[in-house]
Design a protein around this nucleic acid. Structure first.
Length: 454
RNA sequence: GCUGAGGUAGCCUAGCCCGGCAAGGCGCCAGCCUUGAAAGCUGGUGGCGGUUCCGCCACGGGAGUUCAAAUCUCCCCCUCAGCGCCA
């Protein structure tokens, strides 16, 4: 969000940014016109109020010297009051409209962001090839997951509805091992862990930019007017809402593991088969608060940090710089990390690394002081997924498949998994599994030792 | 959920009963003092607009009463404490 003074002074730059995003630039003209009217109303009000205050002082003086009350003065001042009230009402209306429009104005893209209309204009800036050899005939994650009885979509739907799923046994264990691996990585590299609330006030959602525009993307808990966080970015960035940070504390580097909740309204079909797009998922999120001068260095640092997770897991990925047409409202610049999922033959976004500049800092009023004597100014905020779990699990299920249908455990989490080399199938017995021939103990797959490789 | 106390500038606080230009402290800035620094002393230090100076705004938010509201009335939000309930 931009302060109205910035819109007034840099209207042309803002319009250029809207054009680059493929948006209507006349919104800026509307804002400038509203601001001009608001200022005119303000000046007139100011003038009348000065007159009123002079009159009020006259009355006060008269009362002090016990002079006879001047009733004419009073009636005139009463009329003045009514005129002032009319103007104030108009000013309030304008203020509300200006604020509403400012809240919906997207952040201007950074000059290094590639121009483009949509996702096809995104630019690959890095690619990582794993050291291990790829499986020869990779199958989709939901097939192997079901076969091993580790991924259970049916019961997720039964318990919670469409878009929910259940992980069993070693796959649940793998998720928590991955979470622990990522948390330890970030901690060891200088980020401070926080365990934040995952239900937040509406103000917090406005602070980071989820509201007002994207209300239908999140779950609201009505009786208490709280929201389930769609990402840890919301509670973590709002930690310093309405605060002034110390210059020597910047950059503040935090991370948090939380569940995330997204309504994902209207997204079904082949693309959403499995657990690539679900209503609840786990994620480790990195957040930085920086000075305006260093936020682009911080963006690269966050990118390296998120990439490091995937490198250590030895998974194939590419890093993409989002173009102006695909860039989110809030961000000045954004990289996506995409894992290659050979079973579905597609790239899966597991991390989004964004510099919001002052967009969130203005909304949430997070400031710092350049010098001890200068007035507080907005910080820059950034964040990076480090990384999102279900898609990471998909990539492991599809990249770590063996030809006999087992799933190897990535080396960096093996110790956390009790030293095991492969995921154990879930032995849970149920009639449905039996009827479908899916009972792992009776299946030939996965129970025998692996064939010796020569 | 009940009862009570609160919300004032970057931070902390007074003023509220009894309406009449928002006091003080911390921090910060400048000056004095000092070899230097600290301490001490003096002054300055909310925002906006015009820029010698002045005007307006600002006391959680909104509405009302009034010539005049931090102050009185009503509605709402938030925090804390005690009690209740509870993993």
């Amino acid at each position: 969000m931009y302060p109205i003074s910035y819109v007034r002074e840099s209207a042309d730059a803002l319009k250029a940014g809207l054009v680059a995003r493929g948006r209507d630039p006349t919104e800026v003209d509307r804002l400038v016109a509203l601001d001009r009217e608001r200022r005119a109303v303000g000046e007139e009000t100011n003038r009348l109020r000065a007159e009123r205050n002079r009159g009020a002082h006259r009355v006060a003086e008269a009362a002090k010297t016990s002079a006879p009350a001047d009733d004419r003065d009073r009636t005139q001042l009463g009329e003045l009051r009514d005129r002032i009230r009319d103007l104030e009402t108009r000013a309030d209306t304008l203020d509300i409209e200006i604020r509403e429009r400012l809240l919906l104005l997207p952040q201007n893209p950074h000059s290094s962001v590639p121009l483009g209309k949509d996702a096809s204009g995104n630019v690959e800036v890095a690619r990582f090839e794993p050291h291990r050899t790829a499986p020869s005939a990779p199958r989709p994650h939901f097939e192997v997951g079901h076969d091993l009885n580790l991924l259970d979509e049916e019961r997720g739907v039964k318990v919670a509805g469409e878009g929910f799923y259940v992980l069993w046994g070693d796959l649940a264990r793998l998720e928590y091992a991955l979470i622990r691996f990522m948390r330890e990585l970030h901690r060891s590299r200088g980020y401070i862990e926080v365990a934040p609330p995952i239900l937040v006030r509406g103000e917090s959602m406005v602070g980071t930019g989820q509201l007002p525009k994207f209300a239908e993307d999140s779950y609201q808990v009505k009786p208490d007017d709280l929201w389930l966080v769609p990402t840890a970015e919301v509670p973590v960035t709002n930690l310093f809402r309405d605060e002034v940070l110390l210059a020597e504390d910047l950059p503040v580097k935090l991370f948090a593991y939380t569940p995330c909740f997204r309504r994902e309204a209207g997204g079904h079909g082949v693309e959403t088969r499995g657990i690539a797009r679900v209503h609840q998922f786990d994620k480790v999120e990195l957040v930085q608060f920086t000075t305006p001068e260093s936020s682009y260095d911080a963006l690269e640092e966050l990118r390296t940090e998120a990439e490091e997770v995937l490198r250590r897991l030895d998974l194939p990925f590419r890093t993409v710089s989002l173009c102006t047409g695909d860039l989110g409202e809030k961000a000045s610049k954004c990289y996506d990390l995409e894992l290659w999922a050979p079973g579905g033959k597609r790239w899966l976004e597991v991390s989004s690394i964004s510099n919001f500049e002052a967009y969130q800092a203005v909304r949430a009023n997070v400031r710092w002081r350049r010098h001890q004597s200068s007035r507080p100014e907005p910080v820059h905020t950034l964040n990076a997924s480090g990384v999102a779990l279900p898609r990471l699990v998909i990539a492991i299920l599809e990249n770590y498949q063996t030809d006999d249908g087992r799933i190897e455990i990535p080396e960096v989490v093996r110790e956390e998994m009790g030293g095991a080399r492969y995921l154990e199938p879930n032995p849970f017995v149920g009639e449905r599994e039996l009827a479908r021939g899916r009972h792992p103990r009776r299946s030939s797959k996965g129970t025998e030792p692996p064939p010796a490789k020569s």
